[in-house]
Computed example of a mutant assay.
Amino acid sequence: MLSIIKPETPDQLDAVRRLCWEYRDFLLTLDERSVQIVQAVYPQEKYARVLEAIETDHMPPSGGMRLALLNEQPIGCGMFHTLEPGVAEIKRVYVNEQARGTGAGCAIMLSLIEQCRSDGFEYIRMDTGKPLEAATQLYLSLGFQLRDAYSDLPEIVEGHLLFFEMSLRPDQTGSDTKG
């Protein structure tokens, strides 16, 4: 049985960290450019610091986190943080290989979107690598729109990422995006 929870206990937070490391390892199995990007943007020490701070950076009031469990076993995660007032950024959505196709990725995303909406965010932004075609299709199917980059990025990632935005405003289905 699939369930999506808000991780709160040390064991649950450690499971999220393990899944985030699995995600990084997965990205290192993609094409050579993806490997170069991961090694340049998230070297091990820097990524370890990011994961050490998830309890503060990705928890209320400035963010949120989800852990997907399949038959009580951690199989996926996702999180968001405040990018700027009214704008959340979803990060590190990952489902391990054994659980792909179970609907866990969609369930994680729907839970994160709902939390962003109930927290009063007006927009959600996110990015993904071009090789992650299943992720791209999921985000588009959920109503995200392609847009231009929304932050300054290292030169190495230019042309390798896709950027998305979703409006949570009741009067809009999309936003002023370029794509």
Results as ranks from 00 to 15, higher is better:
Ser3Val: 12
Glu8Arg: 01
Glu8Cys: 01
Glu8Ile: 05
Glu8Ala: 05
Pro10Ala: 01
Pro10Gly: 00
Asp11Ala: 12
Leu13Ala: 01
Leu13Cys: 01
Asp14Phe: 00
Val16Phe: 02
Arg18Gly: 00
Leu19Ser: 02
Tyr23Leu: 07
Arg24Met: 07
Asp25His: 07
Asp25Arg: 07
Leu27Met: 14
Leu28Trp: 01
Leu30Gln: 08
Leu30Pro: 04
Ser34Ala: 05
Ser34Glu: 05
Val35His: 08
Gln36His: 10
Gln36Thr: 07
Ile37His: 03
Gln39Lys: 13
Ala40Cys: 09
Ala40Trp: 02
Tyr42Ile: 06
Ala48Arg: 08
Val50Thr: 06
Leu51Gly: 01
Leu51Phe: 00
Thr56Cys: 04
Thr56Arg: 15
Asp57Val: 02
His58Gly: 00
His58Trp: 05
Met59Arg: 15
Pro61Ile: 04
Pro61Leu: 02
Gly64Trp: 14
Gly64Phe: 09
Arg66Gln: 14
Leu67Tyr: 03
Leu67His: 01
Leu70Lys: 14
Asn71Pro: 00
Gln73Val: 14
Gln73Ile: 15
Gln73Ser: 11
Pro74Ala: 12
Ile75Asp: 03
Ile75Met: 11
Gly76Arg: 06
Cys77His: 03
Gly78Lys: 04
Met79Lys: 08
Phe80Tyr: 15
His81Thr: 11
His81Trp: 11
Thr82Tyr: 01
Thr82Ile: 04
Pro85Glu: 06
Val87Thr: 15
Val87Asn: 03
Ala88His: 04
Ala88Tyr: 05
Lys91Met: 07
Lys91Ile: 05
Arg92Thr: 03
Val93Lys: 06
Val93Trp: 02
Val95Gly: 05
Val95Glu: 08
Val95Ile: 14
Asn96Lys: 12
Asn96Gln: 14
Asn96Glu: 12
Asn96Asp: 14
Glu97Gln: 11
Ala99Lys: 07
Gly101Val: 04
Ala104Ser: 13
Ala104Thr: 10
Cys106Phe: 13
Cys106Ala: 15
Ala107Asp: 10
Ile108His: 00
Met109Asn: 09
Ser111Trp: 10
Glu114Arg: 13
Gln115His: 06
Cys116Thr: 03
Ser118Pro: 02
Ser118Asp: 06
Asp119Gln: 13
Gly120Asp: 07
Phe121Ile: 06
Arg125Trp: 10
Met126Thr: 15
Glu133Cys: 07
Ala134Arg: 09
Ala134Pro: 00
Thr136Glu: 15
Leu138Arg: 11
Ser141Gln: 12
Ser141Val: 10
Phe144Tyr: 12
Phe144Leu: 08
Leu146Ile: 03
Ala149Leu: 02
Ser151Cys: 10
Pro154Trp: 04
Val157Ile: 13
Glu158Val: 13
Glu158Phe: 11
Gly159Trp: 06
Gly159Phe: 07
His160Pro: 01
Leu161Ser: 10
Leu162Asn: 08
Leu162Ile: 00
Phe163Asp: 08
Phe164Trp: 09
Phe164Asp: 08
Leu168Glu: 09
Asp171Trp: 14
Gln172Asn: 09
Thr173Gln: 10
Thr173Tyr: 11
Gly174Met: 06
Gly174Ala: 15
Ser175Asp: 13
Ser175Phe: 12
Asp176Cys: 12
Gly179Tyr: 06
